[in-house]
């Protein structure tokens, strides 16, 4: 083996000694971050352990949340998190893909830049401002116009039955949709702009209209990247706290109606942490945090996986 011979003749290692030291130094912050992640998980687990021991898996499947009697079931907040995020994804995905297509494929370059900047600005608005907007603009509008409309036409479905409160699951989902649209659309834009011009010309060259070109050359080859973008948006929606807490109505109950108030994992923590007086109440809230941490960690990992592979397909 030639490699072995060379290693004997020449101290190859020493030449790259500096590189090795440098790489070693760079490993410290990387290892530190991994350690931090683990220690957060461990801390959450430790702090939640009284409730974990007491309730076991029933914590995830039961609905009663009664700090007075020290009974804790997280099903309603898990349900609320899933449903509000799902509404957000259903609204934000087509919206974001549409925005990204418009910005990369249709808008003249200058318009695209200005409009793109405005969309990114949506991400910079503080969550609490969205919450205020939700309370004073969105919720009244839902209560007086949107929800009665759905109730009239689709009221036979359990999702659109019950009194239209305005504040509730639907409102939270819509706010979340607005908040994650910049995330999804900016990643979608990157995915689209990475597609080579030759592919677009291939489509135009065989007589595709602009829309057909977008479908053939742009959308079909970005499926993986778009999936990653949506999952990343989902990760943001699951953990969003302030705006949701302000608009979701904060009721600990599983209700099929989207008009009904509910709560999410993040909102119940924000709502109750300050007034949690017993150790078990705190532990229960921490366990909700642990579940949320685990879910968002997994969701984000999946998104990264999709995005990292989107290049070669």
């Amino acid at each position: 083996m030639p490699g072995v011979v060379r290693a004997k003749n020449r101290p190859v290692r020493e030449i790259h000694y500096g590189d090795r030291v440098f790489a070693g130094i760079l490993k410290i912050p990387a290892a530190g971050l991994a350690l931090l992640l683990l220690s957060i998980a461990y801390f959450l687990y430790r702090a939640a352990s009284p409730v974990i021991v007491k309730h076991g898996w029933a914590f995830l499947t039961s609905s009663t949340w009664d700090p007075v009697r020290d009974v804790y079931g997280a099903l309603p907040v898990i349900y609320g998190t899933v449903v509000s995020s799902f509404i957000a994804i259903v609204i934000a995905t087509p919206l974001s893909v549409g925005v990204a297509l418009f910005l990369t494929e249709i808008a003249p370059r200058r318009t695209g830049r200005v409009f793109g900047f405005l969309v990114e600005m949506l991400a910079a608005i503080p969550s609490v401002v969205y919450g205020l907007w939700g309370i004073f603009v969105l919720a009244p509008w839902l209560r007086t116009s949107v929800e009665p409309f759905f109730k009239t036409w689709l009221g036979f479905l359990p999702f659109f039955s019950g009194p239209p409160y305005g504040v509730g699951m639907l409102a939270a989902g819509i706010i979340l949709a607005v908040m994650i649209t910049p995330t999804i659309s900016s990643i979608a834009r990157e995915v689209f702009s990475a597609i080579p011009l030759q592919q677009r010309e291939a489509a135009l060259g065989i007589g595709a209209t602009r829309w057909e070109m977008m479908r053939l050359a742009v959308l079909q080859s970005s499926r993986r990247g778009l999936t990653g973008a949506v999952i990343l948006g989902l990760g943001r929606a699951l953990g969003e706290t302030m705006a949701v807490t302000m608009i979701i109505g904060n009721r600990h109950e599983v209700s099929l109606s989207l008009f009904a108030p509910g709560s999410t994992m993040a909102s119940i923590i924000a709502n109750e942490y300050a007034e949690a007086t017993t150790d078990t109440h705190v532990a229960a809230l921490v366990e909700v945090g642990l579940v949320l941490f685990a879910v968002t960690f997994v969701i984000n990992s999946i998104a990264r996986l999709f995005l990292s592979r989107s290049g070669n397909r």
């Binding site: 080579p196 030759q198 592919q199 291939a202 489509a203 079909q220 080859s221 397909r313």
Partner: peptide, 9 residues
């Protein structure tokens, strides 16, 4: 075209 450009999807 100059570079072969079949649709990858």
């Amino acid at each position: 075209f100059q570079k072969p450009n079949p649709f990858p999807s």
